[in-house]
Amino acid sequence: MTTTDKRVAEEVPLTAHRRSLTNVGFEWLSTGAAALILVLLAAVAAFLLTEAWPAITDTSGELADKVSWIKPEDGESLLQVVGYLIFGTLLISAIALLIATPLSIGIALFISHYAPRRLAAGLGYLIDLLAAIPSVVYGLWGAIVLIPVLQPFYAWLATYFGWIPLFAPDPTTGVVSPTGRVALSAALVLAIMIIPIITAVTREVFLQTPKLHEEAALAMGATRWEMIRMAVFPFGRSGIVGATMLGLGRALGETMAVYMILSVGLSTSFAILQSGNHNTIAAYIASQFPEANMQGVSALIAMGLALFIITLLVNMLARWIVSRRSEFSGAN
């Protein structure tokens, strides 16, 4: 009998626990990595809360005295400024999402179900490249290239659709902003920035549609579009919602592009073709932070806290939407 004939099992007693150092080490490493996420999240939340606390709880009016951008003489308080900013942030992000989602789903469907295989691969790669462009470049391109192109279109919109509050021209001058640095421009650039994210995620989801379901639809005489409606969309529904929320997360927090494009102001106006009406939380913090004193920083952090809470709520809403009809999802 040579050594190679020896049965391995004979050498391992039933009571042997193979807990080598690498085994235990890896278990700790992965547990630690998971715990680190929780610690980081808690740390960020704690930082925001403690730093923002003085500004939130200030009742003496001292905050208004020491923070130049809160104007009590105009009847403004911190809460009101934050309110305007939340409005602007949500408005611009919602418009960006409204534009980006259908486009992204269309692109993803073309790549996953319509395009010939080679074209699909190339196009997918190009879309991924869009995600690699830094946001400051998007800001520059938006401000220098896109806006001059869009401005005449805005004027046209206001002329023919000005009766819709969204497209209303400036009531005093009767025309739209001649610079084009308006909320719609910011929303359009944001839309372009989030298209790659939504497209990449939905494309992967669409590609995972079970062949079984696609063939079930085709075999009962569905056209390709009917097959997509019967098999691909229902299967990918939670993926589409998830992708949209990822995109919304980026749009809500995007700072640089909005900062460079938007002519800012504070209001709750829906007129997205007028300049000086809107601003977003992220862009506002970035613009005020370099000049802020101690109370000012505290007030800005309170705004950061507001943004953090909004993003959290959006994510929870998305999870709720996904779980609502989980009994009917493709998972079971």
């Binding site: 079970p210 079984l212 379901h213 063939e215 079930a216 639809a217 085709l218 075999a219 009962m220 005489g221 569905a222 019967m230 098999a231 229902p234 299967f235 529904r237 009809r325 009917f328 999802s329 493709g330 079971n332």
Partner: peptide, 27 residues
């Protein structure tokens, strides 16, 4: 052609997002 020639597959493939009644009426 496929509306005239129906097909049943190897593995049962009802649409998971549809109810029993909706599955029957899908085609």
């Amino acid at each position: 052609v496929r509306r005239h020639v129906g097909m049943v597959f190897q593995r049962p493939n009802p649409f998971p997002t549809m109810s029993i009644a909706e599955n029957v009426l899908a085609g």
